[in-house]
């Protein structure tokens, strides 16, 4: 799980263009919206990266979530998605 989170932190750095320190601060509890401030273009880019790396369908996963779950979505949730 922790290895997956670190790998996701790297992908998140790629899609945001943020630096190493930002990436190091990403944890399983980091929320995509409130903490990492991902913008919609970055979520789309993350979806592409997840498909390429693990073959998972992020848009289909997001389509199953309600508004509160989407606002609360964390890096840990994405790690569980790619690990299942």
């Amino acid at each position: 799980m922790d290895t997956t989170v670190r790998e996701l932190a790297g992908l998140l750095r790629d899609v945001t263009g943020e630096d190493e320190r930002w990436g190091a601060a990403v944890t399983a509890a980091s929320r995509l919206e409130d903490d990492l401030r991902l913008e919609s273009v970055e979520v789309a880019a993350l979806g592409e990266a997840l498909r390429a790396r693990w073959g998972v369908d992020l848009p289909a996963y997001l389509a199953g979530l309600d508004l509160d779950e989407l606002v609360a979505l964390t890096v840990g949730d994405i790690a569980r998605l790619v690990s299942r």
């Binding site: 919206e33 409130d34 401030r37 991902l38 913008e39 919609s40 508004l67 509160d68 989407l70 606002v71």
Partner: peptide, 8 residues
């Protein structure tokens, strides 16, 4: 608020 929090 931004993003989906702003929708809410």
């Amino acid at each position: 608020d931004r993003g989906l929090r702003a929708v809410r």
